[in-house]
Amino acid sequence: MKIEAIILSNEDNVATVLADLEGKSSFQIRKGEDIVEFRVAEPIRYGHKIALRHIEKGDNIIKYNEVIGRATKTIEPGYTVHVHNVESLRGRGDLD
């Protein structure tokens, strides 16, 4: 069966979208062998990430069970998680 989105580990607060979800209100996310139904709040592009739960401003974004950045705004479930609401924590010069 075609995967519409994938969650890579239990700790992750984002999933990666692997289908065109334009016009869809919900989709199926693969998590290991399980499939879970999830609601989309806005159109999300192929290859981009969707918030799986409420993410507070300043919270870590977790993918691959690792920190990939920090939320610069509060993100509600079903919304896109990308450069407009996430910042990198590396190679910046202003952080240790």
Binding site: K63, G69, V83, L89
Partner: peptide, 15 residues
């Protein structure tokens, strides 16, 4: 990379 959905260097590196 960003257009393709990668948000940060950390995410790119982990992949």
């Amino acid at each position: 990379n960003i257009k393709g959905g990668l948000t940060t260097i950390e995410e790119k590196s982990l992949g």
